[in-house]
């Protein structure tokens, strides 16, 4: 990028530096070539499709020939008072998920690391990973198996056994802000735990040996050694999630609550809103406007948070 900013009068130097760069690093370019080609195919060429967000599409006139509509396609995102609720839901859930996806897996990873019995530790990791394999459609069936009004395990077996009244789960919106984070954490636990485990195992034993000799207890070791040393991993994982803070997990919010309208105030997020709109209106301009909006906000947020991270610790920043 720097290269492109070189003023014209330095062209000779510029060409020279390119040649030298190529001569020195040609093997790097060769190695990266497959990756670059794939990124171009998968991401960069299609990126030009962003202009659709500003058009009313008519296929016969072609994409360039279709009339421009300015920001009209963005209007429906803010058209009703629901917009506030939807954006709030998306942000709150995702923020909560980010926190939960750090705290619990990190705690689990630390505990597993302390487990004396390697076999048991491995066994638990394996089992914890199970939910990660399941698609949201399958999970929606699991949840339904427990919470269905008539056939669910809770209402059919558990609550009567405890002498409690059945709950109409799919109409009780109060419980879902708890259920959804639980499901999300349950599903991703194995994944994040293994990521943090890998980082913890990577820490040199000598640090701990030295600390033990100095008389540091477990808690102090964790605070002074483990956490600071895996901070880069934590930061990366968090920054990446912040970048997608406006993109909700569609499966979790669409499949799991089973389109129960009574739950919309707590389950409707940007992605489900856009999808339902698409089903009715079928307009790619609207969907692409929403996608662009989400990208731009995520983009800005990542840059801001990265800037903040940089101010504290240059090393931990993503770029």
């Amino acid at each position: 990028m720097k290269v492109m900013l070189v003023p014209p009068k330095q062209k000779a130097v510029f060409t020279y530096s390119i040649v030298r760069n190529l001569r020195t690093f040609w093997m790097f370019y060769v190695m990266m070539l497959p990756g670059i080609v794939l990124l171009l195919i998968n991401n960069y060429i299609p990126m030009s499709g962003i202009i659709i967000a500003f058009k009313t599409i008519n296929y016969q006139e072609g994409i360039l020939g279709s009339p421009w509509t300015g920001l009209k396609n963005f209007e429906y995102l803010f058209a009703s008072k629901d917009s506030y609720i939807i954006i709030r839901n998306t942000l709150l859930y995702n923020s909560l998920f980010i926190v939960l996806n750090i705290v619990f897996p990190l705690a689990f990873a630390l505990m597993l690391n302390e487990m004396k019995n390697r076999f048991l530790s491995k066994l638990h990791q394996t089992i914890m990973f199970l939910p990660y394999f399941l698609s949201m459609i399958v999970i929606s069936y699991l949840v339904y198996g427990f919470m269905s009004d008539e056939r669910g395990y809770f209402n059919g077996t558990l609550l009567p056994a405890l002498g409690l009244e059945p709950v109409r789960w799919y109409f009780t919106k109060e419980v879902w802000p708890i259920i959804l984070p639980i499901i999300n954490t349950w599903k991703n636990m194995g994944y994040y735990t293994v990521v943090y485990m890998a980082a913890i195992i990577g820490i040199d034993e000598e640090f701990y040996e030295a600390a033990t000799i100095d008389g540091a207890n477990k808690w102090q070791q964790m605070k002074k050694i483990t956490i600071p040393l895996i901070m880069p991993v934590i930061t990366i994982m968090t920054l990446l999630q912040i970048g997608r803070i406006f993109n909700a997990d569609f499966g979790l919010f669409f499949q799991v609550p089973r389109e129960s309208g009574a739950l919309f105030p707590v389950t409707n997020v940007i992605d489900t809103y856009v999808y339902r709109t698409f089903l009715t209106v079928g307009d790619i301009g609207l969907s692409s406007a929403a996608g662009l909006f989400q990208s731009v906000v995520g983009f800005v947020l990542v840059f801001i948070s990265n800037w903040v991270v940089r101010r504290f610790n240059r090393e931990n920043a993503l770029f």
């Binding site: 998968n42 991401n43 060429i45 299609p46 990126m47 030009s48 499709g49 962003i50 659709i52 970048g243 790619i284 969907s287 692409s288 996608g291 990208s295 995520g298 983009f299 990542v302």
Partner: peptide
């Protein structure tokens, strides 16, 4: 961060 969307891809 940025996706061009499904159709162009």
């Amino acid at each position: 961060l940025i996706s061009g969307g499904l159709v162009p891809w």
